[in-house]
Design a protein around this nucleic acid. Structure first.
Length: 820
DNA sequence: GAGAGTCGGCTTTTT
DNA sequence: GCCGACTCTC
């Protein structure tokens, strides 16, 4: 092959793409990369970017021909390999920047990759138009060839919220009971099919009947038809329709084959079937596909990721080079040892053993606490101590399995006055006020966006309720026009009530006016005018609820963030794909986040609370996914441990409040899967030790919690507090101590019988004997205004469980019933 | 159409 | 125990 770059970008006949400025301008990325390769190039020796790579990394970078799988363990320099590989390809002149397809999962990863490549070869990275997320690249393809998949250019991208509202309408139209068959469930099922690359026609018959008595498949088809009618796609379609585009149009596929000389995929273990199919189609061209990933860090199976994709790579791409990166640059020896021992309990992995050349460092600590409050207290104290020793709070993270665990820490840190930052949670663009504001803008930008129109037609309340909306809907359906056009026609007619007619006339006129200003005003000024004139801002100003001010601030932030875009359309396109907003850096603060959102991050000190059966591994994962679920939970534990550079500190509590109920818990089996030589069992600094779990035996299974001790809601009564104080003061007797190592129970974290018995019984007795005594006793006949006559089945404080003659068993507060 | 009251659900999360 | 969705009433 001659110079592979002999098809210059922008050559009109060969590449019918609207190519960005990627031709070899003097300052372009390719020119800079090429300069790197020349001995005299800007002072760089040839291949200077290769310096400092270890032999495996270098092999992964230099294996440019054919399929390559890089198995990159945690902390082994995965991103560095990816970015260096791109720099290498560019500097050898193997491809232009626009001939490299580089895919990531998140916008954040794409951004980081751009920055790092930019730092390596020069600042200009716009030269890599095909570096992005699966979805953004899918959109790019679909926008170019929209007519080939039955869309008009300028189609809208619906997010989950829109998706569910659309499905709700479909279900309602068919008279489906939404209690039994929620739209959300259908959305999940459809997403599942799309994740697997299945269109409505390809859904296996049996599965299609899973929803609403055999109508799942039909609803899927109807939903897709609705999307087409709205000229819209959902996130799943971005891939599914791209696949269809490539499959049904060999000429288009051939063009992409010629274009993409090199394909790189990040986090390959997280790809789903659809992404895999898409990738295979594209990779069939050059066959130069390089996937980087770690099967041990696959934690997104529940949303369609197929670990199998990475496990099967060598079969899928015959002749693949496999490079293992096992040299860890992040964690100390003990942390790696503990993590490696844990993950070795998983079957079905490709098998890597991380090693480090650094020191072994501190052992991983395992600490038991009496309950989740004490767990938070102990962690708070350790953090304060680290802080006193001069450690930065930003280098400390608390990684939880589920977000309900966060609150305990937040409360504790507020009392301590310790700065913290919760990462994750509801994102900026998901907030109601932001979505409302965006809906206004969407209607302005594309009048046929019915979902957006519906969202704000009566927000703020302007008297256009259900009845009015139904009229508009009916007319729109009959005339086959968008809602806002239907509204316009109705206003011109005599159909509406006078008051409704006036309001609707004003609203339609407002939209016309705003649309007229779209070209003359910058989009942020327009947004401000729209929010003002529509009464939306005023609605929140009048609102006296606590978060109203926060919402107004968010709206301001939204308007401010619009400045940096070229126009309204550009802004809307951006936010439909990039639902995150640059996180405010904030000062020195402890990071609190879920294990899932911690993937890819690292901290000096990592606290891992809540290692209890049922919480972690999560009970539902076990119930629903069985062994596969357990293994994914274990990978999650592995991810958690390997986030730590110097200190990993695991905690478990014997009692935890879940859904408002106190439940005693068994220490997680994962604790016993940590290698003993790397672990140190410490006592909680709170001092009261822990009460232990049920049996200390490994009879794990779904029934484990059936006999779990549960306490009533009287936990905060003086009696309960006395019980806790009592527990605190006699920690010597029942507390956890190294002593339980010497008994020959299967688990070294199992409770001593003594500790367990004393605590639990005490708590139970006190909990039952306190609280406001009810006027009623078991067996009493009572009367309730709503439920009628019944018999008291149980009494918990002032709460009664009553077996009503007609209404069945209900829980009621005793002030609502009278003696019969 | 607003406000109060009731009921059910409740892992992880990106695009 | 808390939150959101829905219903009921005025």
């Amino acid at each position: 092959m001659a110079d592979p770059r002999n098809i210059p970008d922008g050559a009109p006949s060969d590449f019918p793409f609207d190519l960005p400025a990627a031709s070899p301008r003097p300052g372009g990325i390719a020119a800079r990369a090429a300069a790197l390769a020349r001995p005299d190039g800007a002072g760089h020796a040839r291949g200077v970017y290769l310096d400092g790579l270890n032999p495996e990394q270098r092999a992964a970078v230099e294996a440019t021909d054919g399929p390559v799988l890089v198995l990159a363990g945690a902390g082994t320099g995965k991103t560095r390999v990816l970015t260096t590989r791109i720099a290498h390809i560019l500097s050898l002149g193997l491809a232009w920047p626009s001939q490299i397809l580089a895919v990531t999962f998140t916008n954040k990863a794409a951004r980081e990759m751009k920055e790092r490549i930019g730092a390596m070869v020069g600042e200009e990275v716009e030269g890599m138009p095909w570096l992005g997320t699966f979805h953004s690249i899918g959109v790019r393809m679909l926008r170019r060839h929209s007519e080939l998949v039955g869309l008009k250019s300028g189609f809208t991208i619906l997010d989950t919220d829109d998706q569910i509202r659309l499905l709700k309408q479909l279900l309602q139209a068919e008279g489906i009971d939404e209690k039994r068959w929620p739209a959300r469930l259908l959305a999940n099922i459809i997403d599942g099919w799309k994740n697997r690359g299945l269109g409505p026609q390809q859904v296996p018959a049996g599965e299609g009947s899973a929803f609403a008595n055999g109508r799942g498949g039909a609803f899927y088809a109807a939903y897709q038809a609705r999307l087409k009618a709205l000229n819209a796609v959902d996130f799943g379609d971005l891939l599914l329709e791209s696949i269809r585009l490539l499959r049904e149009n060999p000429d288009v596929l051939a063009e992409y084959h010629r274009r993409f000389r090199y394909i790189l995929v990040d986090e390959y273990q997280d790809t789903n079937v659809a992404q895999y199919l898409w990738l295979r189609l594209l990779a069939a061209g050059s066959r130069n596909v390089c996937c980087v990933g770690d099967d041990d860090q696959s934690i997104y199976g529940w949303r369609g990721a197929e670990v199998d994709n990475i496990l099967r790579f060598e079969t899928d791409f015959p002749g693949a080079t496999v490079v293992r990166l096992e040299r860890n640059y992040r964690s100390t020896g003990h942390i790696l040892g503990a993590a490696a021992h844990l993950i070795a309990h998983n079957a079905g992995r490709l098998g890597k053993t991380l090693f480090s050349e650094g020191e072994s460092g501190e052992k991983v600590t395992v600490t038991g606490a009496w309950d989740s409050q004490e767990e938070a207290r102990a962690i708070g104290e350790e953090i304060e101590q680290l802080q006193r020793q001069g450690h930065a709070l930003t280098q400390i993270a608390i990684l939880v399995r589920a977000s309900f665990q966060m609150r305990e820490f937040e409360e504790r840190f507020v009392t301590l006055g310790l700065n913290y930052r919760v990462i994750g949670g509801p994102r900026f663009y998901e907030r109601a006020e932001i979505r409302d504001a965006l809906a206004y803008l969407r209607v302005i930008a594309s009048p046929s966006d019915d979902l957006a129109f519906e969202r704000i037609v009566n927000v703020p309340k302007r008297g256009l309720g259900d009845a009015a909306l139904r009229q508009i809907h009916d007319h729109a359906r009959a005339a086959q026009i968008p809602l806002i056009e239907a509204a316009r026609e109705l206003v011109a007619s005599e159909e509406l009530k006078p008051k409704v007619r006036l309001t609707l006339r004003d609203l339609v006129a407002s939209f016309d006016r705003w649309r007229g200003q779209m070209t003359s005003l910058p989009q942020n000024e327009l947004a401000e005018i729209v929010l003002d004139e529509s009464g939306y801002t005023e609605m929140w100003q009048k609102d006296r609820s606590a978060d109203a001010q926060g919402r107004l601030d968010n709206l301001k932030e939204l308007v401010r963030s619009m400045e940096q875009f070229e126009n309204l359309i550009g802004f809307l396109e951006h936010i439909s794909l990039v639902m995150d907003v640059e996180g405010a850096a904030g000062g020195d603060a402890v990071n609190i986040m879920t294990l899932h959102s911690a993937k890819g991050l690292e901290f000096d000190t990592v606290f891992l609370p809540g290692w209890e059966e049922g919480v972690f591994p999560n009970q539902r994962a076990l119930d629903e996914q069985g062994r596969a679920g357990l293994e994914e939970e274990r990978r999650l534990a592995y991810v958690g441990l390997t986030r730590a550079r110097r200190r990993a500190k695991v905690f478990f509590a014997s009692n935890r409040r879940i859904h408002g109920m106190w439940q005693s818990a068994v220490p997680s089996r994962f604790l016993d899967e940590l290698s003993e030589k790397d672990v140190e069992v410490t006592e909680s600094r709170g001092g009261q030790g822990w009460g232990g779990g049920q049996s200390g035996r490994y009879g794990y299974g779904p029934s484990r919690f059936d006999e779990a001790q549960t306490f009533g809601s009287s936990y905060s009564t003086p009696g309960w507090q006395r019980a806790q104080n009592a527990a605190r003061s006699n920690s010597g007797g029942g507390g956890f101590s190294g002593g339980s190592f010497s008994d020959n129970r299967p688990s070294r974290f199992a409770a001593s019988e003594k500790a367990r018995g004393g605590r639990v019984i005490e708590g139970e007795l006190i909990a039952k004997s306190t609280g406001p005594a009810s006027r009623f006793a078991i067996g009493d006949r009572v009367f309730h205004q709503k439920f009628g006559y019944g018999e008291v089945a149980s009494v918990e404080g002032n709460k009664l469980t009553v077996q009503f003659d007609k209404a069945g068993e209900k829980k009621v507060v005793d002030s609502f019933v009278d003696a019969a």
